[in-house]
Computed example of a mutant assay.
Amino acid sequence: MKVVRAKHAGACYGVQRALDLALKSVADGGRAYTLGPLIHNPQVVEKLSDQGVTEVSAIEDAERGSSVVIRSHGVTPQVMRAVAAAGNTVVDATCPHVARAQKAAADMARRLGSVVVVGEAGHPEVEGIVACARESTERVYAVTSPAEVPADIEAPVGVVVQTTQQKDKLDEIVSHLRALGIEPEVKNTICFATSQRQDAAADLSEQVDAIVVIGGRNSSNTTRLFDICAAQCERTFHIESAAELDESWFSGVGAVGVTAGASTPEDQIAEVVARLERM
C-alpha cells in the first residue's frame, strides 16, 4: 500500500510558537499553568503536563506568582487582565493570527458599532474575538450560517472570521449581508496555514483510495479537514494517534493519504505514516 502525505499538514507556526513558549517557561525546572488546553491535542497536553506545564480551568487554580501561559486560541481581555491582577506572570502564547482577528474585531466595534464574527459560538477562539469587540459594543454576533444573522441588523457592519474557518463560509455570510442591503467592511482573518492545509487535503483526497486525518477530536480545524476529505473520499478516518489505526480499514486500498490538523506535531504524523507503511 502506497502512503502519500499531504503537501501541507501538521503543526502550524502559531502552535509551535505556543509550545516553545510553554516549554521555555519551565526550562529552569519550575511549573507553569495554562487556562484550558494550550492547543487542541490531548496527547500533547498530557506530555506538557509531564514536563511541568499544567492545565487548569480557573485562574485561582494556578499557584500565585507562577507563569500562566495564554493558550494559542487566545482568551478574553477580561481573563488577560485577571491573570495579571492575580499576581501571575502572563506568557502570551496567543497565535499571532488569532491576535490579528481580535484586534480587527475591536477596531471595527469602535468605528462601526456592529460586528459579525463568522465562527462557532462557544469555541475559545471565537469567545475571545467576540469579547474583544464587546469592549466597545454589545452588537456582536457569532454566526456560522445566514440564518443566525439577526434580521434587524443595521449598517455599518464589520465582519471578521475565525482563523480556521473555510472561505466559502465567510463568502456565504457576506453575500447574505449584501442581500439585506448592507455592504459590510470585511477583514478576512482566515489563517493562510489553514487554507493551505484545507486545499492540500482536498487535492490529496481525490488521488487516493483512503485518507487518514490526524488530530484532536476537540480540534475544529482538524474536524474541518475530515469533512473536506470525506466529501471526496468515502474511506476517510479521523484518529488522534497511530494506536487507533485498524488494518481492516485498508482492505483493497492501493494508496492511502495522510493529513493532519494544525495542532498535530511532526512526531505524531511520522508515527502514523510508519505504521501505515508496515501494513
Score class of each variant (00 low, 15 high):
residue 93 A to I: 09
residue 98 V to I: 09
residue 99 A to Y: 10
residue 104 A to C: 09
residue 104 A to E: 11
residue 106 A to L: 08
residue 106 A to D: 07
residue 108 M to H: 02
residue 110 R to F: 12
residue 112 L to S: 09
residue 113 G to A: 12
residue 116 V to C: 09
residue 117 V to S: 02
residue 118 V to D: 02
residue 120 E to H: 13
residue 120 E to M: 04
residue 121 A to C: 12
residue 123 H to I: 06
residue 130 V to W: 01
residue 133 A to C: 02
residue 133 A to S: 06
residue 135 E to Y: 05
residue 137 T to Q: 07
residue 137 T to G: 09
residue 140 V to M: 08
residue 141 Y to D: 05
residue 148 E to G: 06
residue 151 A to E: 00
residue 151 A to G: 00
residue 152 D to Y: 02
residue 153 I to Y: 00
residue 153 I to S: 01
residue 154 E to D: 09
residue 156 P to N: 13
residue 163 T to R: 04
residue 164 T to A: 07
residue 166 Q to M: 14
residue 167 K to P: 03
residue 169 K to F: 03
residue 170 L to N: 00
residue 172 E to V: 06
residue 175 S to K: 06
residue 176 H to P: 03
residue 180 L to C: 14
residue 182 I to G: 04
residue 184 P to L: 12
residue 185 E to M: 14
residue 185 E to T: 15
residue 188 N to G: 08
residue 189 T to N: 01
residue 189 T to F: 03
residue 189 T to V: 02
residue 189 T to E: 01
residue 190 I to L: 03
residue 191 C to L: 11
residue 192 F to C: 08
residue 194 T to H: 04
residue 195 S to V: 13
residue 195 S to E: 15
residue 195 S to M: 11
residue 200 A to V: 10
residue 200 A to P: 10
residue 204 L to A: 07
residue 209 D to C: 11
residue 209 D to V: 02
residue 213 V to R: 03
residue 213 V to I: 15
residue 214 I to D: 05
residue 215 G to R: 12
residue 220 S to A: 15
residue 221 N to Y: 06
residue 223 T to W: 01
residue 224 R to P: 06
residue 225 L to W: 06
residue 227 D to C: 05
residue 227 D to G: 13
residue 228 I to T: 10
residue 228 I to R: 05
residue 229 C to N: 13
residue 232 Q to D: 08
residue 235 R to K: 09
residue 238 H to N: 12
